[in-house]
Computed example of a mutant assay.
Amino acid sequence: MRRRIVLFSNVSLDGYFEGPDHDLGWQHVDDELHLHFNRELARMGGFVSGRRTHELMAAYWPTADRDPAATAPMLEFADIWRAMPKTVFSRTLHHADWNTTVVREVTPRTVAALTRGPGGDLALSGGELAASFLAQDLIDEIRLYVAPVILGRGTLLFRPTEQPVPLTLTGTHRFTNGVTLLHYARSGPSPLDG
Results as ranks from 00 to 15, higher is better:
1 M>R: 07
122 L>F: 14
29 V>Y: 08
158 F>P: 01
137 D>Q: 08
152 G>R: 06
50 G>N: 03
114 L>S: 04
127 G>T: 06
161 T>N: 05
138 L>V: 01
64 A>Q: 10
189 P>K: 00
184 Y>M: 03
91 R>W: 07
27 Q>A: 08
27 Q>D: 00
189 P>Q: 10
56 L>S: 09
185 A>S: 15
112 A>F: 01
61 W>H: 08
191 P>A: 06
91 R>E: 08
66 R>I: 08
13 L>E: 12
185 A>R: 14
120 G>W: 03
69 A>H: 10
50 G>Y: 02
176 T>P: 13
194 G>Q: 10
78 A>T: 02
154 G>Q: 06
186 R>F: 09
93 L>Q: 12
137 D>M: 00
154 G>F: 04
81 W>V: 02
78 A>Y: 04
98 W>N: 14
62 P>D: 12
79 D>V: 09
71 T>N: 08
97 D>W: 03
96 A>T: 02
179 V>H: 02
77 F>K: 00
191 P>K: 10
165 V>K: 14
192 L>M: 10
76 E>T: 14
67 D>Y: 06
145 Y>P: 01
121 D>R: 02
61 W>Y: 14
2 R>N: 15
57 M>G: 07
36 H>W: 15
90 S>F: 07
61 W>M: 09
186 R>V: 04
31 D>Y: 08
6 V>L: 09
146 V>F: 08
113 A>S: 07
36 H>L: 02
67 D>E: 05
74 M>D: 14
29 V>F: 14
194 G>E: 14
47 F>M: 12
77 F>V: 03
77 F>P: 00
3 R>E: 04
73 P>I: 03
149 V>A: 06
14 D>R: 13
183 H>W: 12
93 L>Y: 13
188 G>H: 14
163 Q>G: 11
14 D>Q: 11
29 V>E: 10
120 G>A: 06
29 V>A: 15
69 A>W: 03
188 G>L: 04
34 H>T: 02
93 L>C: 11
142 I>E: 02
178 G>C: 00
19 G>R: 04
151 L>P: 02
128 E>Q: 12
150 I>D: 05
132 S>F: 14
114 L>Q: 06
3 R>H: 07
128 E>A: 11
23 D>Y: 05
41 L>M: 13
101 T>S: 15
22 H>L: 12
